[in-house]
Amino acid sequence: MSPPDPYLLLDLGLAATILVLALAALRQRDSFTMAVVFILFGLLVALAWVRLDAPDVALAEAAIGAGVTGALLLRTLRHVGGERRDPAPVPRVVAGMLGLSVAGFATLGGLALMATPRHGTGLIPAVAARMDQSGVEHPVTAVLLNFRAYDTLLEVVVVLAAVMAVWAIDRTIDRAAAPLPYLPGVALRGPIAGAYLRLVLPALALIGAYLVWIGAYSPGGAFQGGAVLAAAGVLSALARGGRWPRTAATMPLLRGSLVLGVVVFTGVGIWAAVAGGGVLHYPPAQAKPLILLIEASVALSIAATLTALFLGHMPQPAARIALRKGTTNDT
């Protein structure tokens, strides 16, 4: 027996904290505290994933899983002013039976996972053997943007589908009867906030762009960078009380930004097919610039998309908004 690894104690502590935070978030009475605990949970999960040599995933979890989801939760709580309980909760007997079956499933799953040896090599050699043809130096980016680029294209499509669905939902609401809430508590207004924004927005833009660019060499990439850019988008929207700019150009510009990633990604894919390689089969010599082009446009689209998902409503013509100015969502 070798002496116990001191890191293992750290691991045990981290794992236990993660589990406690998950339970605390779900069983917490106060909705706002729940959202905050959930964000903390996501950040600690990211820490665990750094420990497990998954820095890209950790970045994505911290920026998107904790950050964006947390912002969406807080924004929704602000809108609805607390949770609404279902009129007919699950009966205790049913809940007990469900609990038992889930516990049984988890026990079997846990034991089976422990009893199963991890596959020896996974796809490590397959990726390593093809890295020189991938056009990038970072393996995760090579997988996302080249070896399994089709998955990533569809992933960007999922996000686009989400915006369309959210806008379809927005259309169902009679805005004359239920005006947009002003997001009063989080609106960034006044001279101090203005100075803060002038400082923070360029910094966020720079960090986001850096994350996208560095993705070719080390952890980072379009989704993490796009999430940081989205933070800039959300902050500048909050400076307007959580509304889109009221110009006539907003809607066409926004629609263009939302689809840019899919258009460039598909365009490059089809261009590669016409050039003779097959869909998404980049010529190795041009792979790097093509991947950077795709990443930059996907990052912009992700930023626009996440901002649109946060605001949750379509840009409206200036005349219609003016009628509703100053309204709040008291119920």
Partner: peptide, 29 residues
């Protein structure tokens, strides 16, 4: 580490945040 599962988890995170955003929009609506 194997980069492929890492790419899958990143995709999974993005897919889930998209679905979460739609679900929360429904809650608000």
């Amino acid at each position: 580490a194997d980069p492929v599962p890492h790419a899958l988890v990143i995709t999974g995170i993005v897919v889930l945040v998209a679905a979460t955003a739609v679900a929360l929009a429904l809650v608000r609506a």
